[in-house]
Design a protein around this nucleic acid. Structure first.
Lengths: 257, 257
DNA sequence: TCTTTTATGAACGTTTATGATTGTATGCGT
DNA sequence: ACGCATACAATCATAAACGTTCATAAAAGA
C-alpha cells in the first residue's frame, strides 16, 4: 500500500459525504477508497465516537440534532428549574389589567407561563408564547418582524413600528449579560434594539429576569444601563456577585426566587 | 440484497415522511423502498419504540406531543392530503426572490411547507409557520397583532400597520368560502381585513388556494370579489361547481392539483 | 539498527437484516 | 352479525454485515 489516502483524510472525506448525503454505505466507501470494508468500518466507528454519525448495518447515517429547536430547547432546559422559579417570582409583580411588554428568551418565556391565569395583556416578540396562549387567560399581542429561528422570536422594522404605538405599564426583560458597569447586554443587535425600545415605551416598572449565570457577563450589544432597572429577579447563587451598595446606587430592588 | 438502503436511512426517511404527512402506510412504504412489508413493519416497530409514531393496522400515525391547537389541528387533518397537493401546486407558482404575502389557515400552511426549499421572503400572519421555518430556506416575516389561538394567527392594528409598509409581488390566499356571486369570504372580521389588505398590497399574482369543500360556500365577511383573483388552485372535486364560462368571465386561471 | 506504534487486511465465528411461510387477528362490506 | 380480504405476529432460513483475533507492513522513534 503506497499511494493511498491517510486515515484522517479519508475520514474527513467520509464526513463530507455523510454531511452532504445524510447516509453512507460501507460497501460504497470500501469501493470508492479502494480499501477493505474493515478499514471503512473502523473509520465509521471512529467518527461515531466523535459523534457526527450513527452506525447502522451496512453503513451509517448523519446524526441529527433533529426536529425542533436545537439551540432554544437546549438553552431552555439548562437551568430550567431555576428559570421556573424566577418566572414565578416575576409573575407575582404583575396585576390584573396590566399591559406588559415581554422580550424574547427562555427565562421570559417562563414568566409568561407563570402568568397563565392572569387577565392581562402581554405584548411580546417571543413567538414561543403562542403555545402558552392556548389555555391562558391573558390576551397576547405579537410584535411583527423578521423571524429568527434560533431564538424563536421576531425583530426588525415591523416590531419597532408596532412599539411606537404602544405604552405599557410594566416590562419584563430577559438578558444575556448583566453588569453594573456595562449594563444589560445581548448577543444580537436586533434583539437589543427591541429590548431598548420596550424599556423606552414603559411608564411603569422595569423588571429584569436573569439567572445567576448571567451575572458579570458582558455580551455584544447594550440595551440599557442598570439605572433603568427597577427590579431584578434572580436566583440565590447571584449573591456572590451582587453587593448591597451597588444595588442601592443603581436603585434596584432585588428579588431572590 | 445489494444496492438497497441501509435500515437507519430507511427509517430516517420514514420518520421524515410521517412528520410531513402525519400518516404512513405499510404497503406504500414497502412499495416505495422495494422491501417486504415485513421489513417495513419492523422499521415501524422500531420507530414506535423510540416513540415518534403509533402503529395501527395498515401503517402508522405521527405521535403528537399534543399541547397544541385542538381546533386548528383537527381542521388541518381534515382533507390533509388534498391540501398538501393544493399546497404543492401553488408552490410551483412561486419563484426564487419573490416576496409573498400569505394569510392564515391550514391550506396556506401547506403552501408554506411546500415552499421550504425556495429562497424567498414570506410575510404572513400565520404563526404556525414558525415551526416550518426551522429548516427552511426562506426568510419569514410575521405581521404583528392580536393573537387568536383558534387560528394560530394574528390580526388587528399592528398587522395593518405593518402591511402599510409592504408591497409584495404575489399573494397566497386561503379562504373559507368561494362564490362567484359573493366572492371570497371568511368567518372572522379581523381575518377578512388582513386578507383584504394583503390583496391590496400585492402588485403581482393573486393566488387563491381552496379545497373543493369551500366551493359555493358564503361565510360572514367578504374579503374580495372573484375578479381580483388571478389563479385558483383547488382539487378535482371542484369541477362540479366551476364552469368554464364563469371562470373566464372572472378572469381566473384554474389549476387542479 | 531495533523497537514501537499505526494502519491495514485476512480468517472465522457471531449478529443483524430480511424475506418466506404459516396461522391468527382485525377491519370492512353486505 | 358474518364472512372475506387484508394485515399481523411468530418462527425459521439465509446472506450480508459485523467484531475479534491474528498477521503483515509501513511509519515513527530510540
Amino acid at each position: 500500500m503506497s499511494t493511498g489516502l491517510i486515515p484522517a483524510d479519508r475520514q474527513h472525506k467520509i464526513k463530507e459525504m455523510i454531511t452532504a448525503h445524510g447516509v453512507v454505505k460501507v460497501n460504497e466507501l470500501s469501493d470508492l477508497f479502494q480499501v477493505s470494508v474493515l478499514t471503512i468500518r473502523r473509520d465509521l466507528d471512529a467518527l461515531e465516537e466523535v459523534g457526527i454519525l450513527e452506525r447502522s448495518h451496512g453503513g451509517a447515517v448523519l446524526r441529527q440534532n433533529m426536529s425542533v429547536e436545537p439551540l432554544f430547547t437546549q438553552k431552555e432546559r439548562q437551568q430550567r428549574e431555576e428559570k421556573e422559579r424566577i418566572g414565578f417570582a416575576a409573575a407575582q409583580m404583575i396585576d390584573e389589567g396590566d399591559m406588559v411588554l415581554v422580550n424574547s428568551g427562555s427565562t421570559t418565556l417562563q414568566v409568561i407561563k407563570a402568568l397563565k391565569d392572569k387577565k392581562i395583556t402581554i405584548i411580546t416578540n417571543n413567538i414561543a408564547a403562542a403555545q402558552v396562549a392556548e389555555e391562558a387567560a391573558f390576551d397576547i399581542v405579537f410584535l411583527g418582524g423578521n423571524y429568527r429561528t434560533q431564538s424563536n422570536s421576531v425583530a426588525g422594522n415591523f416590531a419597532q413600528l408596532a412599539l411606537d404605538r404602544v405604552y405599557a405599564n410594566k416590562v419584563i426583560i430577559g438578558v444575556d449579560g448583566f453588569s453594573f458597569t456595562h449594563g444589560l447586554t445581548t448577543p444580537v443587535m436586533l434583539e437589543a434594539e427591541i429590548t431598548r425600545a420596550m424599556i423606552d415605551k414603559t411608564v411603569g416598572k422595569v423588571i429584569v429576569v436573569a439567572a445567576s449565570s448571567k451575572m458579570g457577563i458582558v455580551s455584544n450589544f447594550k440595551t440599557a444601563p442598570v439605572e433603568k432597572i427597577d427590579t431584578l429577579v434572580t436566583d440565590g447563587a447571584a449573591n456572590d456577585f451582587l453587593t448591597e451598595l451597588e444595588l442601592q446606587k443603581a436603585g434596584i430592588d432585588l428579588v431572590i426566587a
